[in-house]
Design a protein around this nucleic acid. Structure first.
Lengths: 235, 235
DNA sequence: ACAAAAGCAAGAGCGCCGCTCTCGTTATGG
DNA sequence: CCATAACGAGAGCGGCGCTCTTGCTTTTGT
């Protein structure tokens, strides 16, 4: 307590951050499956066993990267939500989607971490769930505030079939009691479809057929908004 | 030539198949990143080096599994295409999508192989591309034949913006000269969105909120069809 | 102020991995 | 029949995740 408070703690934070940074670099270069603690340690000038003072296992290091990625994309989505004009929910919706896409295009490997193949037997810790919910929440918020302002059209979706209605009813009760269930169902599907669109672009699964993927995405996502009950701008 | 023709070749085919089967089992159990040649060889009662007579590297074994997976889902989609009633393209479209979903739900790890995180620096061999095109082709065929039969409505999509139009025009010219570009663009987006919907279910990314994912999928995919210009059955 | 406790880096080592090379053995085809 | 090619087995190399032990330094409690 005599010296600066927690010189050791600060050093620990810095080393932890350096490890994650280097790990991110290696994931980008070699892919998550080939992330090697020894290589990270080597690059940082430490011995591999020292790394276990900061992360109890390789999987825990990867989990930390995953949580960071969820938070990064969640933050981007929430920033777009805050910046989007509440009086034009269609544009706001598209803005949130675009924020997700732009983040994914800029950080393809981080996107892969959170939307790639899951590892069998790997249960995401609850911390991951908290971070993972931010993007769909942002989409939901666009719908909720549009509904509150009377700007949400009746979605083109018919009422969902019975077993789905029950699922959605439970979700609506928990997260958005005032929202029509059909709109909630649309948001849920839109979230999955948004990830599909982004993933195809980021993972290059269109087979190089698109030279203007950003515009294509924008176009597709505008339709997604319309499906959820957000018509194009009034004027 | 004195003995049965190619006893050796047949043995080779059988061993190759056995290796792939065991590898598939291990991918299902442990995940693709942890697929170990040594473990496969051990389970098959051979020594690890013998395996290299059949696959030049671990990545080549994985690639073989990927191609097989593409062919399996492609075959499922084409079977659904053949079975779907041409006079009801909406039902046919939903049928193809359902075939993809059912296959993915039954073979989640194979789905992960083809739609999971790509490995940096890994270029899919051309054989993969050939197999990977079968599902989108099936979707496209539904649209083309519906159009030929006068059953394709003008898609709700407006005309795509300029740079997209050029991309789509090139694709239309190559694959479906008679199809309206807007319909082709819708099919392309629908493909990505379909994979998003399937991936969310298979990878359990809805967070356990859906107890009836099959019905939810059906519902969502019906809307996808409508967007592409295939209205619900006339009845 | 000082001893106990806790945090830390380093090294050695275990078992597993992908992959290579060599060496007998066996089937193939001219 | 015999040269050749395919094959299975074994040893071995470097790299991996992870553990354990050994000293050293910072923090903490009295």
């Amino acid at each position: 307590m005599s010296t600066i408070q927690g010189a050791r703690e600060r050093a620990r934070r810095e080393v932890t951050a350096a490890i994650k940074d280097e790990a991110r670099r290696r994931v980008a270069a070699e892919g998550a499956p080939k992330l090697s603690l020894r290589a990270v340690a080597r690059e940082l000038g430490m011995v591999s066993s020292a790394l276990y003072r900061y992360f109890p296992s390789r999987d825990d290091l990867l989990t930390a990267l995953i949580v960071d990625a969820y938070d990064a994309v969640g933050e981007a989505a929430e920033a777009a939500l805050a910046a989007g004009p509440r009086q034009d929910p269609h544009a706001r919706w598209v803005g949130v989607c675009r924020a997700v896409r732009d983040w994914a295009v800029a950080s393809p490997h981080e996107f892969g971490l959170i939307h790639g193949t899951p590892i069998p037997g790997y249960a995401a810790p609850s911390e991951t769930e908290r971070a993972g919910i931010r993007v769909p929440f942002a989409l939901l918020t666009v719908l909720r505030e549009a509904h509150a302002d009377g700007l949400l059209e009746r979605p083109a979706w018919g009422e969902p079939p019975e077993p789905v209605r029950a699922d959605v009813a439970a979700l609506v009760a928990e997260y958005a009691p005032e929202l029509p269930p059909a709109a909630f169902a649309a948001a849920l599907a839109a979230w999955a479809q948004l990830v599909g669109l982004v993933g195809f672009e980021v993972f290059d699964q269109y087979g190089g057929a698109l030279t203007a993927p950003a515009e294509f995405f924008e176009h597709a996502v505008g339709r997604l908004a319309a499906e959820a009950g957000l018509g194009p701008a009034a004027s």
